[in-house]
Design a protein around this nucleic acid. Structure first.
Lengths: 338, 338
DNA sequence: TTGTAAGCGTTATCAT
DNA sequence: ATGATAACGCTTACAA
């Protein structure tokens, strides 16, 4: 591999001049030409390791996701990569294996690699490793959920109003008994979406039957199981809202299996618009999170910090809106009480 | 951040000695202790950049997948990571965006980062960038499919026999009219699985009706569409074999939508055992690829090459077996001709 | 066994 | 505007 010295020699200038050309500084036109020529001729490219050693910049940002085989997370990662690329930054994607410990490991790993910043979709609601990262002056952006005791920029989704919109839509369509397939009670997004559900009920002066509020673990199996539980109730809901993609899929599977006709016999609103929701019948009414935008926003935020732009408030907490896409899984019903 | 010099000073030895301790070379016991003590006290950790600059080893391998939001690929990536971790290697996952050009970019990127090896799930069947990589002496391992004009170690799946087993199982259960939802004709795995189908027909002295062999693009929508086409035929198949995970899902969706009872009215064999196949009813009989093992095998192979072990043949082509998992989506039928 | 010092490929300071 | 050179933090002959 040719080095900057080879280029300098061939171009008949010093390495300093070559470096200047390479970094777009002002150089006599003639010299610039000769250097560029030499670069091409030798097929030279900068040794990023040496540059990083000198500049303390790797032009790389680390991205930690809880599970590499979860489309929701990887889609966000793709969004980050797409947004960072134009700035010349690349990403290193890591899997924390849904554990705080795994997360700690990956943080250490990325620090070892001298990434210029870390975007993390937290696996739990604490992470001691992050504070140390901040002490080292490495910018951090949280995505999807907050972390206790940590002040950091974050890109969140307005989960509460997202859930609210769904439940409200159901209520407006005459439903009074709306089953909720929720995430874990102690988890950030689970909590927020639950609040949206409750708030809608409150605003319409309806009371909640705790029996039709179920808590799952965000995985398919869990949606499947809870849907069955709801349907087995002596007085089952007339509508279901599943507050996460995988649980939506599981729930739909359960309904299909029981030959329940949606929306004729049961109205349904799901979460997110990935893969499956494209083919499920009937076309599902869903609350969608702007995954691309989440990735993009996180990228912009960290870019700002990495380039030393400390304008604006710290921490900057972005709340992106969800969108309720109305399709064909909700039926209008008439309740005697209306 | 403390450097090796700080450690040397504190321990009262030279940097060379510190380096030796750090790299597990032989050092007087007392010195070792003092160095270790100093390391702990300063919370020192090696600057991997500096080390890599010197040694030309980053202890990182690049992994390029066609699509980060495809579970099949990311599961393999997870397998690679798990297997490489014990050796002290980490991975850098990249998304080629299912294009040869994107792949070329990522290869250049990884070369820039001086990864010690590259494991790639090719997006197409050529990639000029790889030959250059080999010329630079960077080990390459291909996963899932081969690349034209390139001699490289590879981990493949025995697609042909996998498909064969599925079709044979259907035949043995009395089916004579087996619809195939296949991948693109020009794509490696598509081709191989098609051959398996044909071979089974040949071996049982049956003839193939080209009308019930459909070619899709491996995505859900495609499975959905082709299933509908097959079912719309004047004389539809009595069984279907879908030769890829996403197309299997799409196909099942289509069947569900038409309220076709599997296996009573239609037998079905799908591909791979991820996410959905866990909840679909009835439990699906599937051909499963050993994704974990694929990742692991690729990791072992590249590790061997990275550590200069050139024993064994080159290129080493591993063919992993699939497994036919029999569940409840195939019904025995009786054909008059039997 | 240990220390000295050169060198990995850059960038950046300081003269010129 | 350019060049010489020290420095980034480490490894590794070579010498002691």
């Amino acid at each position: 591999m040719p080095t900057i010295k080879d280029v300098a020699r061939l171009a008949g200038v010093s390495t300093a001049t070559v470096s200047r050309v390479l970094n777009g500084e002002k150089v006599k036109e003639e010299n610039r030409m000769r250097v560029e020529e030499a670069v091409k001729q030798l097929n030279y490219s900068t040794n990023t390791l040496a540059r990083a050693l000198k500049t303390n910049k790797t032009m790389t940002v680390g991205v930690i996701v809880p599970d590499l085989s979860n489309v929701f997370f990887t889609t966000i990662a793709k969004g980050i990569e797409k947004a960072l690329h134009p700035y010349g930054y690349s990403i290193m994607v890591c899997d924390s294996d849904e554990s705080v410990e795994g997360e700690r490991e990956k943080i250490a790993f990325l620090k070892d690699k001298f990434v210029d910043g870390i975007i993390i979709i937290p696996a739990g609601d604490q992470q001691p490793g992050l504070k140390r990262l901040q002490d080292d002056g490495i910018p951090i952006v949280l995505v999807d959920r907050l972390i206790e005791d940590i002040q950091a920029d974050a890109v969140l989704v307005d989960n509460t109003n997202g859930a609210y919109d769904a439940v409200e839509h159901l209520i407006v369509n005459g439903h009074r008994r709306i089953g909720l397939i929720s995430g874990p009670r102690h988890i950030f997004v689970g909590k927020e979406r639950l609040i949206g559900y409750e708030r809608a009920y409150t605003d319409y002066q309806l009371s909640i039957d705790p029996e039709i509020v179920k808590y799952g673990d965000l995985h398919i199996e869990s949606g499947y199981k809870l849907m069955n539980e709801l349907l087995d109730l002596p007085s089952p809901p007339t509508a279901i809202f599943a507050a996460n993609y995988y649980m939506s899929i599981g729930a739909i599977m359960a309904a299909n299996e029981r030959h329940i006709n949606i929306p004729e016999e049961l109205s349904f609103i799901g979460f997110d618009d990935i893969e499956l929701t494209k083919v499920i019948k009937p076309p599902l009414t869903v609350v969608v999170q702007p995954m691309d935008k989440m990735g993009q926003a996180a990228a912009e935020l960290i870019y700002k910090r990495m380039t030393g732009d400390d304008s604006g408030p710290f921490p900057a907490i972005l709340r992106l809106k969800t969108q309720l896409i109305k399709r064909e899984s909700v039926k209008k019903v008439n309740y005697p009480c209306l």
